[in-house]
Amino acid sequence: MKKLNRVNSEILRLKNICVQYNNATVLENINLSVYKTDFLGVIGPNGGGKTTLLKVMLGLIRPTTGKVEFLGNNPDKKQKHMGYVPQNFYFDRTFPISVRDVVLMGRLARGGLLKKFNDNDKKIVDNALEKVGIYTIKDRQIGQLSGGQIQRVLIARALATEPQILFFDEPTSNIDRRNLKLICSLLKIINKNIPIVIVSHDIEYISTFVNKIACLNKRLLNKNLCGVNKKTIEFAYNCSVNL
C-alpha cells in the first residue's frame, strides 16, 4: 500500500476553489487532485470555466477563495515546474526567431533572471525537438510553420522546462484529426513520466486518450473523477452525446 502511494503520489491539489470575475461566478467550490500517473481530461461546455481552472492550477489566476497546492507548496510563486501549452497561440508571424530559440525559452524556467543558455540547455532542447519530431526544422523562422508544427513547438517548449506536470489547453481547436492523433499518442508517451491535464470541449475524441475525466460546468460534476461516464457528460452539457 505504501509502495503504491509512492508510485502514484499526489502532484497537485485544489481545495475549495472559487473564482469570480466582477461578481460573476466562474468556478464554484472545486476540489480536485492530480496524481502522478493521471491523464486527466477536463471537459465542459463553452464558458464552463475550463481555461480558468487551468490558469488557477498554473497560478496565473489567483482564486477568490480556496487554495492550490503543488507538490505541497503554494503555486503563487513562479511555476517553474509546470509545462503549459496554450490554447490560442497568437504571435507575430514575422517575429525574427527560430524554432529552436522558441523552445530554448522553455529553459528560462531553470535559472534566474540573468539566465544564459549553456550546452546542457541546448542538449535538452534538441532532445525535446527530437521527441516531438520537429528536429529537422529547428532552424526555420517560426512564421513559416503550419498549425500542427507550431503545436509541436509549444509542446517541445513545455517539455524543455522539464515539468512535473503538463497542461494542455484545447488541442483540438487548431489542428486536424490526423495531427491530433499524432499529438495525443505523443502525449501518451510523455504521460509515462509526468501527469497531463488536458482541457477540451471535444469529449468524443478526448475520451479515447485520457484515463480520468473531470466534467466542469462552474462546479465539478463528478467528484471522484471516474473514467468516462455518459451520464455525467450528458448532465454537464444538458444534451445527449455519443461516446
Binding site: 498554473l58 513562479k78 511555476q79 503549459y84 504571435f91 507575430d92 525559452m105 528560462l108 524556467a109 522546462t161
Partner: peptide
Amino acid sequence: FDEEFALLV
C-alpha cells in the same frame, strides 16, 4: 515573443 509564457518564467 510570448507575454503569457513570460508570466510563467
